[in-house]
């Protein structure tokens, strides 16, 4: 069974401008998969709908979320103090589709901006299964979570728009320029980035899984608000991002 839990804020950190990390102590240990997200409930009931936030990591009953202050809800969340209790859901959606084939394989993780937190638990999983993990991360300016990811990545390449750190340019430009190859790829981030990265991977026969976002009502499969279009065996189908995703195979996504 899934549930809604009362969790205590036990840690809060500003990682970069407007980017917050929040550690939540869950009432008991919960299994949350890399790529899943949780519904976060706000205290102010004027804001009715829960906010979907990706699981950055969840270990020993501590759930870590990283979010960008981008509106009213995330603004309120950023203002909550340590010790406050908030409601969060169990892990929702499907995680990345993982099996045991990663031993000795090169796996490419591509992400940008607020998509990066979704890679932490995934990188750890892949690292523990003996993969050679290459991460290419894109930032606007300030870099965050790079230390954490460095623990699990064999190569970590940072790209910034302004060239303040690492490579000056986009993740795709970096990948092209350095001719990066991999057996598998995983992507998470803004839709325009995912689109070009997916096209690149497909051209180079690298199977890629990506995480999609859509406006959600319920986040658990009841309202059919969050659909995306896929092409499976030549046929166009609508899928629910919250229930069938948020992870999809890149070759099936229809970009419109």
């Amino acid at each position: 069974m899934k549930r809604i839990m009362l969790a205590e804020i036990v840690g809060k950190k500003l990682l970069a401008e407007n980017i917050y990390q929040m550690d939540l102590k869950l009432p008991s240990d919960e299994r949350m998969l890399a790529g899943q997200f949780v519904n976060v409930y706000l205290k102010d009931r004027e804001m009715l709908l829960p906010r979907p936030i990706v699981v950055c990591k969840c270990r020993d009953g501590i759930l870590t979320l990283v979010f960008r202050k981008s509106g009213k809800g995330t603004g309120a969340l950023a203002g909550y103090r340590i010790g406050k209790r908030i409601k969060v859901s169990s892990g929702l959606g499907n995680g990345y589709m993982l099996d045991d084939c990663y031993e000795g394989k090169r796996v490419l993780l591509i992400s940008g901006g607020i998509g990066i937190p979704a890679l932490v638990q995934l990188a750890r999983y892949l690292h523990n299964r003996g993969a050679y993990v290459v991460a290419v991360l894109g930032y606007k300016g300030e870099v965050f979570l790079e230390d954490e990811l460095a623990l699990y990545c064999d190569e970590l390449h940072i790209c910034t728009e302004n060239g303040k750190s690492g490579f000056k340019g986009t993740v795709l430009e970096y990948i092209k320029e350095h001719g990066i190859y991999a057996d598998y790829a995983f992507g998470c981030g803004p839709r325009p980035m995912l689109k070009v990265v997916t096209e690149y991977c497909l051209e180079h026969d690298i199977p890629i899984q990506i995480s999609l976002e859509e406006r959600m009502g319920c986040g658990y499969g009841a309202c059919i608000g969050c659909v995306c279009t896929l092409k499976i065996n030549g046929e166009l189908v609508k899928k629910q991002v919250c229930l069938d995703g948020p992870i999809f195979y890149g070759n099936e996504v229809v970009w419109e």
């Binding site: 009715l48 859509e214 406006r215 009502g217 309202c223 059919i224 608000g225 659909v227």
Partner: peptide, 19 residues
């Protein structure tokens, strides 16, 4: 197939849907 997304919007104490 229903309508295009976004199909959901939050409002003060409520929500709009065009599913």
């Amino acid at each position: 197939l229903g309508n295009q997304t976004p199909r959901i919007a939050e409002t003060y104490g409520g929500m709009l849907n065009s599913v």
